[in-house]
Design a protein around this nucleic acid. Structure first.
Lengths: 105, 105
DNA sequence: TGGTCATATCGATATATGTCAATATGATTT
DNA sequence: AAATCATATTGACATATATCGATATGACCA
């Protein structure tokens, strides 16, 4: 399982207050950038920066519709995060700590 | 719900490959710092830095036992993360996007 | 085709992050 | 009391991040 790096970058995408708000906003449906912007206190260029991070981490789907960008939450990805957290926080058979145990402590 | 900042910092703690590995290691039980260190390719001071971040975000419990530090995973916290993710990714009644909808898009 | 609207990119800046070697602290052992 | 072991802190450094205003791009409308 070398998904550590992969999910580290997903968690990095979630490690910002503004981006968490955006994810929350998208939870009840599609929104365009201008609507998201109106619910935040940031500049347009900053929003664009955050949306790029969310889209590149596949947390949100971005679809161009003429001049507008329409964003939706990628539930598959957020489900995968929950699955990953359960994986790394639940005892396993072949755990590193079991395989390579010092036992001197 | 102003837990955005709170969880943003928890996700920041999870946004590093090394720290995800450490969480995974702790999933099957208590480990001391020296055992964790042996399973990573980082210096002792770097490990100390990472453990501080994990402990301060309450993802791990740190208990001093003489000269040793004994670390365990705080399952309550990881459960809270899963709960939070479900909260911000599930449609709600009183969602920001519903309250303040532009509808021009 | 010129103007306006929505979004993206650029350049600058201040702050945060991850890493190490060196050193400090504090406990255990001899 | 001195030496050793486990961990924490410090200082230095390179890199990443979040933010903005200014500007560019690209779509739609008059």
């Amino acid at each position: 399982m070398n998904s550590y790096i992969e999910f580290a970058s997903v968690f990095k995408a979630l490690s910002d207050e503004t981006r968490l708000k955006i994810v929350d906003m998208l939870s009840c449906g599609e929104m365009c950038a201008c609507d998201i912007l109106e619910n935040l206190s940031i500049s347009q260029s900053t929003l664009s920066y955050h949306m790029k991070i969310l889209a590149e981490s596949n947390l949100v789907n971005a679809v161009r519709d003429g001049a507008w960008m329409r964003y939706t939450l990628n539930k598959d990805k957020t489900d995968a995060i929950v699955y990953f957290i359960n994986e790394i926080t639940t005892p396993k058979e072949k755990c590193i700590c079991m395989i390579n145990k010092n036992t001197k402590c």
